[in-house]
Write a protein that binds this DNA or RNA. Structure first.
Length: 170
DNA sequence: CGCATTTGACCTGCGC
DNA sequence: GCGCAGGTCAAATGCG
């Protein structure tokens, strides 16, 4: 079985309950603490260890599961979604973000908000949206990895991040 | 003043 | 080609 590394390119937001959260791995979603991920389109489930990134020339081009045909080869950065329950939309994850857009999402009464990391030379993006299905759930999607230290290291969520890594069987 | 936010316009990919 | 949906830009505006 292939071994690969899982890491979270962000720290967890405030008001995060690790037991009530899940990490979504780009095209796949599921509960990593149970070791299962499912393909978004086919809903076919894979063991997390069967899902891997497709990398060409050092660039992320998609992800696939064993026995699953390859995804589109469009060049883009890996995206990591983090889903949690929260009363507030603005989750402080320790980085400084500048909002650059807001869009209404189809079949969703809540808008999606787009943020960019304000750190010089860091073009990490994230988008935040609330689910219509369960409006207590906030879905945060990160794109890219911060190549700089956290801007507000005084926040106390680094230990929650450590907890989260324990929960993920990678 | 220096930054962040708001918000409509614009761009792009995709399906028909 | 056209329309839709998602993503981004940027000028105007707000705020400490």
């Amino acid at each position: 079985m292939e071994n690969y590394q899982m890491f979270l390119p962000f720290s967890l937001p405030a008001n995060t309950a690790p037991n009530d959260s899940q990490v979504i791995f780009d095209n796949f979603h599921g509960d990593t603490s149970k070791g299962l991920l499912s393909d978004r389109k086919t809903d076919k489930f894979f063991q997390v260890a069967e899902v891997k990134e497709l990398v060409e020339n050092g660039r992320f081009v998609g992800s696939e599961g064993v026995g699953c045909k390859k995804k589109e080869k469009k060049i883009r950065k890996p995206r990591y979604a983090f889903q949690t329950r929260s009363q507030v939309d603005i989750l402080d994850d320790g980085y400084r973000w500048r909002k650059y857009g807001q869009k209404a999402v189809k079949n969703n009464k809540f808008p999606r908000n787009y943020y960019r990391c304000t750190h010089q030379g860091c073009n990490v993006k994230k988008q935040v949206q609330r689910l219509t299905k369960d409006e207590t759930v906030v879905l945060t999607t990160y794109e890219g990895v911060h190549a700089h230290p956290i801007d507000k290291p005084d926040n106390n969520f680094q230990h929650i991040l450590n907890q989260m890594q324990i929960h993920t069987p990678f």
